[in-house]
Structures are given as C-alpha cells and as structure tokens.
Design a protein around this nucleic acid. Structure first.
Lengths: 218, 218
DNA sequence: TAGATTGTTAATCGATTAACAATC
DNA sequence: TAGATTGTTAATCGATTAACAATC
C-alpha cells in the first residue's frame, strides 16, 4: 500500500470511531454522503480516503459497515496489540488511565511512571505505577511502544529523551512544550490550552472568518 | 485585520506557548529561524504567520519576545477573560479542572456540570459542580462562553445541544462522537483515541511514510 | 431498465516554501 | 560598510472538490 498522509490517517481513525460509536439503528450499509455529512466533509473525499485503504463500495448500496470497520482496523494496525505507557501519574495521567482502560481495545495501558515516590508501586485503575528509573526495564518487559506524556512542562523533554532511549516508537504529548524527538519517533501534540486558545479566538471573531475544517488532529 | 485561517491561529497559539514556556535563558529577542527550528517549521512560514498579526521584526535582531507575546495575546483575544465550563465531572473532567485551574490565565473555569446528583454542589479544585438542569442559568450568570465536553459518547450530543441553547460560543469536545452543531458555534475535536490510533499507525509503518507536519491541532 | 452511487481523474483551491530585494 | 535577517512575492506543493463515466 502506498504511503498514506497524516491527514488521511486522521480521518480514517475518525471514520472508524463513527462506525463504532454512532452506527444508525438497523443499518448494515452506509453511503459515502452519509459518512461525509456526519463529519462535515465532501462525499468525494470520503470515497477517496476509503479508496486509499482499498475498500470497495457498491453503487446503490454503499459501504458495508462491518467490512469497512474490519478494513480500517487492519489499515490502521489496530488488529494487533499496542502497549501504551502513561508517563506522569498526576491528575491528568490518572484520568487518562481510567478513561482509556474503561474502553479496552488493542491499545492497552501496560504501565504508568512517576518521579513521586508516593505514587510508585501504587495501582491506578488496574495499572501499576513504576519509578522513572525503571522505565527502560518495564518498557522492554511489557512490550510498550507508545507513550502518553503528562508531566509538567519542565520535565517533558527529559522524560521524552528517556522514552526515546528506552525504545519507544511514538509519543502523545500533553505538556505545553515543543519536544525535540528523532524523526523516526512519531509525535502527536495534544496541548489542551492550544485548543482552548483557538476556540477563544474563533468565538471572539465573526463565524465567517472560520475558514477551515473544524477538526485537525489535525 | 483580514480573516486568519484555522491553521495559522493554531500555530500562533503554539508560538505563544513557546514564548511563555520555553524562552531561552537571558534572551530578549528571537530570530524567525529559531522559532521555526523549535517547531519544525520553515522560517519563512514563521515570518509569514507573524506578519498576519502585524508583528514587525528587525533584520539582524529578530523579534522582541515581550512585544511578540503581547501582540499574540491581543491577536488571539487572550487579553480578555473567557469563561469556561466543564461539562461532565468524571475522571477526565475533574482532571482538566485541576490541570487548567493550576495555570490560571484569562481562560478561567467558572463552573462544572454533571448529571450525577452525588457530584452536584460539590467543589472540585475550587470549581463548583452544578446540575445539568441549571446549565442555562449558570452559563448566563457566570458569563461563560466556552465549554469543555467530557461526557460519555451517548450523552455528548444532548449535552452539546443544551450548551448551544444556553448560548455557548465554542465547544472543545473530548467525546468520541461527531457532534452536530450550528456553524456559528466553534468546535474543536480532541478525541484522544484518535490521536493514539494515528500513533499506532505511524509506529507500525516506516518513518519515511510520515508525510506531514507532526502537529495538527490543529 | 433507469437511476443512484461509486471509483477515479481533472480542476481548483489553499497552504507551504523558496527566493530575493529591502533594511538595519 | 558588509552581512545577516526580515517582509513579501512568486513558485511549488499537496489537499480538496467537482465532474462524470462505470456500474450495480
């Protein structure tokens, strides 16, 4: 399969969520324009995206939901397990553990890490918290490839360096810091205040000025 | 000022965070290529973005940090206060309250809401939790314009409808649901699993395939 | 069949980058 | 001054949309 752009992957993940969380009652198939309407996209874009992962629809019938879900799972590599670590077991980190463990998928949180000795060896929502010193050992032992970084800004870059050293392949960063990572390590920035600030701007300016898609992740 | 695109606003917010959180020791000015390097952008893009908000740099000296921060605050409407509500006081909602209240800015959380009677009237990190039934009253009384939506998927659309009815201007959505909102209400989708799924894909495929910016939001 | 919807190409659009004259 | 960096335009690039023949 040809390289698929970041943008397309983001939309494919959203299609998958839509199919999982919001399938209209009693439907087995969906038309491209229905998916498009739910996400405020053009129908040709939906067809084009689905084409990129080799899905086939049928004129007059649309796309079969179960087959499409299976195809998306496969394309997004969600048919295999991915080990996830949460680094920083503060309020946000613990909330993310609880939130993500509640919806068990192939993305499973296998460990938490914190510098605070009071948190080490505690178990949060079924996930054990380890000392940062044990990062490399635990990452290897648990087969962890992804990390969610929820430490304070000042601790983010050192923690990221430690993660890279431990062989992590992707980082989801919540700290308000522009991380420097080797290019081969995937990075998603998810700085909540950035999103709030965007909202503040767009609610303060006429709606007309909102030029682009409402999404991102993006 | 001309309309500024969603993409540019997102980067401006990130420049602002960089200037606030990561100013190199003892510097009063920064060059466009320094800002660009920190964010993995082209230097001409930084200059272009700053031009959009009317900032002037000086050849040989770069951009004055304090003046630039002030200009960005003004452009992003962060010089005024914005009232924020957190809807859904579960683990994630309460963590966001604690997280955002710790970094008091002009984006201040003025109220939380939940359907659970056990949570109503409790105070989380200094923020009072109200019944959903009181949404409209409290939003008006507290001058709330933005909402952070952290309710379960099934409750998201009804909650969003109630927020719109109460006159909210922008919604930051954490629920894994494609919300339908009137176009004049700004919407940012921040579905954490979507980001994790993107990471899973990019860590499973050769780094070379990563075509685009590492960010989004945005 | 006729009509609706897909798959796919071509056209458009917007965003990014390169280039360089202006400037300090 | 000379050289480095800005402001800004033009060129490139990629993403989105429109269009329509193929198809069920």
């Amino acid at each position: 399969m040809k390289p698929i752009s970041d943008k397309v992957i983001g939309r494919l993940a959203r299609y998958r969520t839509l199919l999982t969380e919001q399938v209209p009652e009693g439907r087995t198939h969906l038309f491209s324009y229905e998916i498009a309407a739910a996400m405020r996209l053009a129908d040709s874009q939906v067809r084009r995206d689905l084409m990129a992962v080799g899905t086939r629809g049928v004129p007059q019938h649309g796309y079969e939901i179960e087959a499409l879900k299976a195809r998306l799972d496969d394309a997004l590599a969600l048919d295999r397990a991915h080990g996830v670590a949460v680094v920083g077991a503060g309020d946000l980190g613990r909330a993310l553990i609880a939130f993500l463990e509640a919806r068990r998928t192939t993305l499973a949180i296998r460990a938490a890490f914190d510098v605070d000795p009071a948190k080490v060896n505690r178990v949060f929502s079924g996930v054990k918290c380890h000392a940062m010193a044990d990062l490399e050992k635990v990452v290897a032992a648990e087969g962890i490839t992804l990390a969610i970084l929820c430490v304070p800004a000042a601790a983010a870059q050192p923690a990221a360096d430690a993660l890279v050293h431990a062989g992590i392949r992707g980082v989801l960063n919540f700290a308000p810091v522009a991380l420097r990572l080797p290019v081969q390590v995937a990075l998603e920035e998810l700085v909540i205040t950035t999103y709030l600030e965007k909202l503040a701007y767009f609610t303060t300016h006429p709606a007309k000025e909102r030029r682009n898609g409402r999404h991102d992740a993006r």
